[in-house]
Amino acid sequence: MTEISAAPAAADRPAAGESYHRESRWYPYALIAPTMLTLTVVALVPFLYMGWISLHEARYGQIGAFAGFANFEKLLTDPRFWNSMKVAGLFVAIAVPIEFMLGLIGALVLSQRIKFRSVLIPFLFIPSMMAPIIVGLVWKTMLAGSWGFFSYNILERFGILSGSSVFASPDLALYGLIFVDIWEWTPFMVLTFFAGMQALPANPFWAAQVDGANPVQIFFRLTLPMLAPLLVVIGLIRTIDAFKVYDTIYILTNGGPGITTESPSVLGYKYTFDFWEIGTASALAVVIWLVFFVFCNVFYQIAKRRLNVF
């Protein structure tokens, strides 16, 4: 029993055997070691290498002399970089709130007494679970100029656009991509919020009903505040994802027309594989990574403190 008082950790209660104390110290680290080693090799080392490149002259795969912050200076004075940030910002600012609202409405509808709910739910997962490149393909065909199903039957019929694709128009291309993102992610939001609502405790809702609260009051005073941590987490995940969008943009517009839909990911790709400006590309990657790290930290703190799930 002296061993227990020596190691007061509550989780290590089942003491047995002589080697317990030493074992308990190293055992968890031994379990996580393979993962940590692997992640160090596959993620940390490449990342540090990229940081190193970003401080050097680098073009065409040749790493040259130390360059200080020249690459960062070049990046931050490049209008294309600020354009890509604007594209990502607009994308997030329009797509995410719409997905949120539609998601909440959908989740409320789904929470009603609905027949065939268990049959419907799997279908709603399909857009967000299928490959983003195939999502792009779906909408490349639906919105293809003149013959695409949506182009011909909706856009052309209602005189919004005729003869060409949404993705060929500098004014509409970004909104086309936002529409695709909303199609892809709203059903997932519906299901997430639905799952969140199902997991809420029933007692406060009973009490509110007994007290005569109407459904609108219940939604704004009970459901929404209780879901708040979940909403923040999903908002962060989606914001991060929106900065990462690459596949759908690649297949639908590849950043065009011009640079109207060039997201940071697409720009990073072009710096690397089109202009071979490896140094600038690395600087861009470092900047994106820093932004993400802040997001990650916020996400983790909220998830841990408020949701108590990790």
């Binding site: 993962t35 993620a43 990342f47 990229m50 490149i53 690395s282 990657a285």
Partner: peptide
């Protein structure tokens, strides 16, 4: 740290 490796956009890693 585990989470941070997940959040990184692939375009950042694909260069190195």
């Amino acid at each position: 740290f585990v989470l941070a490796t997940r959040m990184a956009p692939p375009v950042c890693l694909v260069i190195p």
